[in-house]
């Protein structure tokens, strides 16, 4: 139990740092919401090496913490809708057992942006926001793919050493 608490703290700190580093790397596409999705590395590692509950907890806690630290109520809402939808899709695809880490992460990236865009439509109450959709889908897929490759390499190398 003590070991688990320490591990969870470590992963939460790691996810928080990834989110912070990501904010320092702007992607100048002229469109809001295009991000690397570095924190998804941590979520993927946890999903594959530890467990669903733990991965979900870290994902949500990370969003709440970085929202309170660097963002505002709105950024928490957007991040949560993206984070939870992407987590659900990744979990389903992983459970299907047919697809590997890279595909799971790519789908996660796409659905993260779909979730955020959906929340934006709800909040702004205007479908003009959907104008961004194509670019956000493609950027989500590309960053998801990269993150998936990275996460897979990490999981293959140290995944079996992470044990509670």
């Amino acid at each position: 139990m003590k070991r688990k608490t320490a591990y969870m703290g470590l992963f939460l700190a790691l996810a928080l740092i990834c989110g912070y580093v990501e904010m320092l790397i702007p992607i100048p596409l002229g469109i809001p919401g295009v991000k690397l999705g570095l924190t998804n590395i941590v979520v993927l590692i946890m999903l594959y090496s530890i467990g669903v509950k733990e991965a979900f907890a870290i994902s949500v806690l990370r969003i709440l913490l970085s929202g309170f630290l660097f963002g505002n109520a709105f950024s928490i809402l957007y991040s949560l809708s993206g984070g939870i939808l992407s987590f659900a899709v990744m979990l389903l695809l992983k459970k299907s057992g047919r697809l590997g880490c890279i595909s799971v992460s790519t789908a996660g990236g796409i659905f993260h942006n779909i979730g955020q865009l959906g929340m934006a439509v709800l909040i702004v109450g205007n479908t003009a926001v959907l104008y961004y959709c194509p670019v956000l889908l493609v950027s989500g897929a590309l960053t998801g793919l990269l993150i998936g490759v990275l996460a897979q390499e990490i999981i293959l190398r140290i995944g079996d050493r992470i044990r509670f």
Partner: peptide, 10 residues
């Protein structure tokens, strides 16, 4: 489109 999400401006 330009969106300002916090101020709900489109």
């Amino acid at each position: 489109t330009i969106v300002c999400l916090p101020n709900k401006i489109v």
